[in-house]
Design a protein around this nucleic acid. Sequence first.
DNA 1: GACTTTGTTTGACACTTGTCAAGAAATCTC
DNA 2: GAGATTTCTTGACAAGTGTCAAACAAAGTC
Lengths: 213, 213
Amino acid sequence: MSSNALSGEIADRPARVSGIDKIERRRIALAESALKTLGELGYARTSLREIANNSEFTHGVVHYYFRDKIDLISYCVRYYKTKCAKRYDEVVETAATADELGAGFLAKMTQTLVEETPMHRLWYDLRAQSMFEEQLRPDVVAIDQLLEAMIWRILSRYAELVGGEPAVDAPTAYALVDGLFEQAVVGYAADPEGVTDRLVARVSQVLPKLITT
Amino acid sequence: MSSNALSGEIADRPARVSGIDKIERRRIALAESALKTLGELGYARTSLREIANNSEFTHGVVHYYFRDKIDLISYCVRYYKTKCAKRYDEVVETAATADELGAGFLAKMTQTLVEETPMHRLWYDLRAQSMFEEQLRPDVVAIDQLLEAMIWRILSRYAELVGGEPAVDAPTAYALVDGLFEQAVVGYAADPEGVTDRLVARVSQVLPKLITT
DNA sequence: GACTTTGTTTGACACTTGTCAAGAAATCTC
DNA sequence: GAGATTTCTTGACAAGTGTCAAACAAAGTC
């Protein structure tokens, strides 16, 4: 029962501050290791034991820090979320021209596609799973909103630099760009050859059409 | 071993034509039942026993007609494929004006979203799974191409009726429309309220931008 | 009607899964 | 350093999985 009290939202009165810090550190280490395995195998094929095996911990530890599987996955997703949505912020802030913004965006986009393929695969997997597993939905919705806001920042800044207005609203813009990106992720899993080039070509073809000058 | 010979591509010399017909009929019946369960539970959570339980057959029969689980799923996907890509053909052929085509397309699109939600959920699930399960890839690629061609038929006919040219190539157009549709499918699973209306608004907002007049 | 082929049921197998609990080890507290 | 608390290991459990094979039923063949 003590494990239960610890594993949910931190509602307990912890004895020492350094204690809950250590717990949080362990959870993060577990989550990072779990994310590696999840990205490799996907949600369905990843068991708690597999996660433990690919880490420096035993499978009992996993259950000591997380109530159950969903709790772990959910934690992983929330942890992942904090990293992924700030990817383009620097580009948006530093770019002085529309072309510079477009180029920077595309560069970062292909970079993350190549360097963090497993994470993107996992994300699309989890989003699909959320249609069947209700408990995943809140986290998926939150990330989707984060990504939508991110795309919107890029598009509206792009419009600003080009001296126009976005021609579509935020959800539409996100769905369009996400469609292109998911196509690239799926294609990259099957055969990486030329995928990034095609993605760049398509996005830069579409982006101007989403602006009214 | 006889089951093995039968379950792959039909490479055997069948004794009687009526025999292989009956086999094919059983396989189709199994596939239809399996698709119902798969659409409800998703790929990961669907076991052969669950499929058998939700059908009039026992779990042994499943294995009699299909070599293994992947063989069954693969057959289901190919069977599903034959149904889904012709959905809009009638609209394309009969529509006399661009508006009529657009309206017909949107109507069919929302109709299939609502009436065949489980199938669409399954499709996006399977496409995500194909990133992890290599054996699923050929079928997924085939369906993706079919859908891409379908969207392309609509878009080029639309351009023709409006007296212009498609402004993007087929894969791009497919990715864009698919992004909007997937967003609707995921959103529909979470909360159906107003999803179709938003989908219609977004698609009809985007479609004209994909044409140069 | 006996015999062979085809189809189906049933029960079993080896294995993996999430979950848990009892106890060992490490850490902290005084 | 003794005692209490936290952390971790280990082994077990019940349930569920894909797969298969042997017994049984049905249908077709001569």
